[in-house]
Amino acid sequence: MTFDWQYMIDVLPHYKTALWLTLKLAFIGIVFAILVGLICSIIQYFKIKALSNIVQVYLEIARNTPLLIQLFFLYYGLPKVGITLSGEVCGIIGLTFLGGSYMAEVFRSGMEAVAKSQVETGKAIGLSNLQLMRYVIIPQAFSYSVPGFSANCIFLLKETSVFSGIAILELTNTTKNLMGIFYKTNEALFMLVVGYLIILLPLTIFLTWLERRVRHAEFGN
């Protein structure tokens, strides 16, 4: 296996743009996924009647179908019924749709892990549901959810590679294009792997650190 280093330096700018795009899409997707997940988990925690059923259906659909097919449906299917979305918007919607369900699951189990005595004490001193959520449940649930949450972040970041199916020029798709143009397969794929390592290694290390750091918030078990 030989490497053409000069070529790798030449195409570096392409990878840099692709890396930023990957990061940007993943970041927006994850932020929205956290919002969706938080809303869904609160609805499920309080078992709000009609809404909780809808959330359940959403969770099952999102968790049991592959992202690629969700994206294909959004990107190629929906324009046929009059809804046209750009690739990047599709990507973000897909990531939010998928990620929201995973986040909801993690947050919900985190909330359920908060000791019963905590909730009861909170009620006993007369906190409203909102205050109970804000001051008692969420801070503790957060620390329980961190391991699952960090696994989800890494999972969602990796899932952005699937965006190459709908013509978004992120890392994987850029590599595919460069391979098609220059036939420098080894170099392109090497840079692709390095690109993902650059994003994911620091993130993994940071999240492992965070996991250890937030353990202090747990109480009552």
Partner: peptide, 20 residues
């Protein structure tokens, strides 16, 4: 396998092994 996406693994094995 946790850090590198499966799609990338597929590409790597698909393109690199036969060529090299």
């Amino acid at each position: 396998f946790r850090i590198i996406p499966i799609l990338v693994w597929l590409f790597v094995i698909y393109y690199i092994v036969p060529a090299n």
